[in-house]
Design a protein around this nucleic acid. Sequence first.
DNA 1: TTAATTCTTGATCAAATGGTCAAGACCGCT
DNA 2: AGCGGTCTTGACCATTTGATCAAGAATTAA
Lengths: 208, 208
Amino acid sequence: MAQSKPKSPGKTRIQAINEDIILGAALEVFSAYGYRGTTVDQIAERAGMSKPNLLYYFRRKDDIYRAVLEKTLADWLAPLRGLDPEGEPLDEISRYVSAKMAMSRDNPKASRLFANEMLHGAPIIGDFLSGPMKALVDATAQIIRAWITKGQIAAIDPYHLIFTIWAMTQHYADFDIQIRAVLGENSDHFRNAETTIIRLIQDGLRPR
Amino acid sequence: MAQSKPKSPGKTRIQAINEDIILGAALEVFSAYGYRGTTVDQIAERAGMSKPNLLYYFRRKDDIYRAVLEKTLADWLAPLRGLDPEGEPLDEISRYVSAKMAMSRDNPKASRLFANEMLHGAPIIGDFLSGPMKALVDATAQIIRAWITKGQIAAIDPYHLIFTIWAMTQHYADFDIQIRAVLGENSDHFRNAETTIIRLIQDGLRPR
DNA sequence: TTAATTCTTGATCAAATGGTCAAGACCGCT
DNA sequence: AGCGGTCTTGACCATTTGATCAAGAATTAA
């Protein structure tokens, strides 16, 4: 049964494969060294092909960077879309925290890629931030505000609630080195971090 | 009365002045573009001197970077040293959060400089992290643990409490663009953020 | 098989960039 | 004023790096 055929029109089999390989290599390198710290040669080497060949698929370094950013953006915001206005607020938010924490654990490179882009003033995804992302945050804030109005959770600024959740969860991906320097290498601090964060949030939201 | 004379031996008046100017310019540029994204020319231009002149004071780009990192490190950790084991825990921690938040507001460039260094694996300050910084965090965790033992605050992982505080407060400096994209430019979100964070922490620490 | 298309890369280029050098300007001291 | 040391910079160099090109190899469809 034909299953994996997302082959968009005008795209060769080899094209699809190699673009995937390149984007994977690019995420690897860009997230580790930043945009300016990354050379096309590095990406090419990691992708296992020559530099001219890589530039045959993406004509400019900038194109690769944009492509890998765009590819990861969707995944990154996805959990926020899952918030159910009809669900139990504390459960919904806890689930969201868990989802974000899982992303930080399983795909720290994506987190670092964004962190780097933000840190440098979001030159590429700036429009995305003030457009689709702001819209999604606004919508989510509305859901939270409705919960507050109905007395289901304590009154708290919905925006800063969202921001602090992002801050705490992404921190464990972006500042991974710092955390490992303090807690040691082979500790499962992600689990402890998650329970700590969820507790903070739940205690802060519990209506009194 | 002679007041400002930190002139270390063998350091000229002009030397002291220019090194200060250079480090200021370097913080500006490094925090905005990262290590690799910064050119010596940029720093020189911002410092208002020629590139060879700048390299007369710091012989390598790397030396400038290390110097500006080192200079800001002390300030950055300072608030953590102020925790008084004898004080009222909730007050002490709230004061600490306020101090960190003030640093994010008043010196976001220092925050971004460190964030960038961490993001790229802390190649320069790695030893500092696992050395003096770890020691300071360990000591602070001990203080918090004592408070827990005495029943003054709820049982919580001291390390992750510290990490989450760092995460939330530094986030407002490092992800400034994102926050402004969502909340708009001329809102005093730092104040709202601080009250939200302090509330989360206090509710989470209140003994029950 | 064959011809058209797609893919691949060694060689090469131009610009950017970290760093050097020699020569002159300036400063501080006597 | 005059002298030694400090400071400043235009010109220059070597390397890195993003990007191009022409020519050959592999793939695809008939």
